[in-house]
Amino acid sequence: MKVRIKFQKHGAIRFIGHLDVMRFFQKTIRRAGLDVAYSGGYSPHQIMSFASPLGVGLESNGEYMDIEVNSLTSCADTMERLNQASVPGIQVVSVKVLPEGAGNAMASVAAAAYTVRFREGREPDVFGNKAEHEIARLLEDFLAQEEIVITKEGKNGPREVDIKPGIYELKWTEHTLSMLVDASSAGNIKPIQVIDAILSLHGEKLAENALLITREETYMLSNDGNTLVSLDDIGIDDEKM
């Protein structure tokens, strides 16, 4: 039986990298005493898959991983036990049983929502000292371009990519830039790439380490393929079991 776990990552723990978060969960699952399934062979490992790696320094309200379990007490109990065994900065917020045949977390990812704030003193002029409607206008103009070409560093050297089709939403409220962008393995867009593109339109460059980024949610396509739903939209919780 496959279980989808949603968790948040905040505070000092944001400096723990993706691979170490995986190791953290392997040990946390043991401490929590979950009946997790193991692969075969001489060095068996827990069957586990993460939706999308989160970069070092980013916080998140919407991380996901799938684990395979042999048995389950209940979703609520599993969540309780994981949180007991976890550290303060990593909190599990939902546990759901996946229906038979559901795609794994990583393959399902279609989009991600981020909120981005600028560190004090590092707001670029484009976003600094302007009324909200002015910035809204500026973002409209940005999105009104025919294409938004950026250079991505790939395995085979840099290549030019049009990210415009992958930017689904972009808005500015209360000094925060919210965006909903493509997060699929083929077309993943990082928040900083969007911001760099906006700034370069105005001839401005982002200061080093200027952004405070939170991933708010990770999405997949709904069954009919028309809308984005959060990754735990398909799970079954205790009430439906």
């Binding site: 000092a12 400096f15 723990i16 990298g17 170490d20 550290v87 080093e208 380490n209």
Partner: peptide, 17 residues
């Protein structure tokens, strides 16, 4: 700024289990 710049910042942040 420092933590983002150095190798393995997890060496210095404590908060382990």
């Amino acid at each position: 700024d420092i933590l983002m710049k150095i190798e393995k910042p997890a060496r210095y942040i404590g908060n382990e289990v």
